[in-house]
């Protein structure tokens, strides 16, 4: 009797160990899959995006230089120049950031530090709801409200617009869409500021407002900058809403804000229903350029942040 008990206990221990090894490898496998995803995305899109420029491309090798620096994009004539589109995207993204950033940071500061508690919670909930509204709904709102509004304003100045679809519409739309992102991250950053810093400032005789603007904002600087970077990335990558109000101009870059325009994302979505061959493949190339632009802008802003940090320190 005793010998059988000892045997089954040993077996149980062995089973438990093997089971542990098995589950550990399962979990490890999942973790590997998850962490490799980003690499898969970059590699596959890079590969597919570069194929039109490779020597033996099925539909006729494209000139990389003409693609990157071209100022015309015509589906019907198979002319694909993404240069002006990049400029348009940069203009719209940065303009939206310049518009949204101050409002976002001030709103964050107000809701955390200045407003009474209930108002602060109300603002935070508003931001949360705004952040969860899907892009298509923003697009419908833009086409129905912003675009006609621009049309009326333009007519008041005697400027011709294509029904209101314009660079200005894109910038306003993007500013509205990235506002919640930057605000919510700024709120988190401001909340994380050490209370002692504020108290020290007040003890030295500064008013609350001085403390808020000079101490709290500086202390939350890195978080706020992170919010700005995320917001900018979102502005560059926003697709469905932007394509509803852009207009898709064939050449550029668009410097007249009342003129129709075209961004990288609107290009990737335009005429998707009837594409074949080169026209379909070239969208991957545009996607690749988009990823590079987002990466480069992230790095530049990070560099800028470090420079500003050094100045103040």
């Amino acid at each position: 009797m005793t010998t059988t008990l000892i045997k089954s206990s040993k077996e149980k221990k062995r089973f438990k160990r093997i089971q542990d090894q098995f589950t550990k490898s399962m979990f490890l496998l999942s973790a590997m899959i998850s962490s490799l995803m980003i690499l898969v995305i970059i590699l596959f899109i890079a590969q597919r995006g570069l194929t039109p420029f490779m020597p033996d491309y099925k539909y006729g090798t494209q000139d990389l230089f003409k693609f990157l620096f071209g100022m015309v994009w015509r589906q019907d004539q198979a002319i694909y120049g993404v240069g002006f589109i990049v400029i348009n995207t940069l203009i719209s993204g940065f303009a939206a950031l310049i518009l949204a950033f101050p409002i976002a940071v001030l709103t964050a500061l107000f809701s955390v530090k200045i407003a009474p508690k209930k108002v602060g919670t109300l603002l935070e909930t508003t931001i949360e709801i705004l952040a969860s509204i899907p892009s298509v709904v923003y697009g419908v709102f833009a086409v129905g409200s912003i675009v006609p509004m621009i049309q009326t304003i333009a007519q008041g100045f005697g400027i011709q617009t294509a029904g209101g679809s314009s660079m200005l519409a894109v910038i306003l739309l993007l500013a509205i869409m990235i506002l919640p992102t930057i605000t919510s991250i700024s709120i988190t950053a401001i909340k994380a500021v050490d209370e002692d810093l504020e108290k020290a400032s007040l003890a030295l005789g500064a008013t609350t407002t001085q403390t808020n603007f000079k101490i709290v904002l500086s202390a939350a600087k890195s978080g706020i900058f992170a919010g700005a970077i995320l917001g900018l990335g979102r502005a560059f990558g926003e697709a469905t809403a932007v394509s509803m109000v852009a207009g898709n101009k064939m050449f550029g870059p668009t410097l007249d804000f009342f003129d129709i325009t075209r961004t990288m994302t609107s290009t990737m979505l335009a005429g998707l229903k009837e594409t074949i061959g080169l026209d379909y493949d070239i969208r991957f190339s545009v996607g690749l350029v988009l990823m590079v632009v987002i990466l480069v802008s992230n790095l530049s802003i990070n560099l800028l942040k470090q420079r500003i940090g050094k100045q103040h320190a």
Binding site: M37, I38, I41, L230, M268
Partner: peptide, 19 residues
């Protein structure tokens, strides 16, 4: 590497899915 995924625009995911 997982956090990087959050910065990828959704249209890029569409391209990845197709590929």
């Amino acid at each position: 590497s997982i956090e990087l995924l959050t910065g990828v625009p959704s249209i890029i995911y569409g391209l990845m899915g197709v590929l």
